[in-house]
Amino acid sequence: MMIRFYLDGQLVEVDVKPTDTLLKVLVDKLGLTSVHYGCGEGSCGACMVLVDDKLRYSCLTFAASVNDKKVTTVAGLLSDHELSPLQKKFVENNAAQCGYCTPGMVLVAKALLDKNPSPSDEEIFDALAGNLCRCTGYVPIVKAVKSAARR
């Protein structure tokens, strides 16, 4: 079946099977580098995207369900090739080592701060609990989110 959706601001049309996940379509069919397969069961958050401003594990989302919707990956946070303030904070705090978990971490931080511009430490830990990191370590990531929050 053909579906169409806005991917990081661009309209795309793609032929999908009803059982294809959004992750599969984004990586295998559209060749995106900004979403990653990590677990396939919503445990690690490496495949995170925003669908109409709601966080989604793209491995747990059928591609057909985003028809006519807006899908944003971390690449979509750039404007005019300029990093968003949140992305800049991740850079300043060295909050990425291998980088595989980073897109998911940035997107969850964005979703959190959009709703709650000055979260407590507890709220940051709780929001990020669905995203795993194995090499950067959570300390610089949490520091980046805190520094991006309104104090």
């Binding site: 919503g42 958050g45 747990l60 969850v108 959190l112 709780d126 990020l128 669905g130």
Partner: peptide
């Protein structure tokens, strides 16, 4: 509901 871990799971 609060104990469901992570913002993404809570939203889904």
């Amino acid at each position: 509901a609060k104990g469901i871990h992570g913002l993404a799971l809570k939203q889904n």
